[in-house]
């Protein structure tokens, strides 16, 4: 079947097998390998992307279900060579070690901060429940999300 979607601002249209998963479409067809496959069962969150602005596990979405959608992947976070505040936060606060869960964590954090600009530690821990990290023990990830939240609130004030 044919699917058409806008990925990181660029529209593309491809013929795919009906059974193709969105994550495989992104990685194999669109050649965006920043999104990772960690479990294929929507339990680990490594494959999290934004679909129409909301975080989804792209391993349990069919490419067909994303037909017509706006998709943002980790490759689409930085704008004009400027890191997104969540990327900056993860770098500043050592929010990653092996980096495999990181793209999913970044997309989840982006989704969280769009809903809650000032999350507490408990809010962040709760929001992270669908995203596993085996390296950091999460504390530096929480610091990273809070760093991004501060930065985004500051930027919002500046632009207002």
């Amino acid at each position: 079947m044919r699917v058409t979607m806008t990925i990181n601002g660029q529209q593309r249209s491809d013929e795919v097998e009906d059974r193709m998963l969105l994550v495989h479409y992104l990685r194999e067809v669109a050649q965006l390998t920043g999104t990772h496959v960690g479990c294929e069962t929507s339990l680990c969150g490594a494959c999290t992307v934004l679909m129409n602005g909301k975080a989804v596990k792209s391993c349990t979405v069919l490419a067909a279900q994303a037909d017509g959608a706006q998709i943002t992947t980790v490759e689409g976070l930085a704008k004009d060579g400027e890191l997104h505040p969540v990327q900056e936060g993860f770098w500043e606060e050592h929010g990653l070690q092996c980096g495999f869960c990181t793209p999913g964590m970044l997309m989840l954090a982006t989704d969280l901060l769009s809903r809650n600009p000032d999350p507490s530690e408990a809010d962040i821990r709760h929001a992270l429940d669908g995203n596993l990290c085996r390296c950091t023990g999460y504390q530096h990830i929480i610091n990273a999300v809070q760093y991004a939240a501060r930065k985004m609130r500051g930027d919002a004030r500046k632009s207002a």
């Binding site: 990685r27 390998t33 930085a78 993860f90 980096g99």
Partner: peptide, 19 residues
């Protein structure tokens, strides 16, 4: 010192085996 590994990993530019 913040990590020099990170810029590639936070931007989707790391190359793991599956990549």
């Amino acid at each position: 010192v913040k990590r020099r590994e990170d810029p590639r990993l936070i931007s989707g530019n790391g190359t793991y085996v599956d990549d």
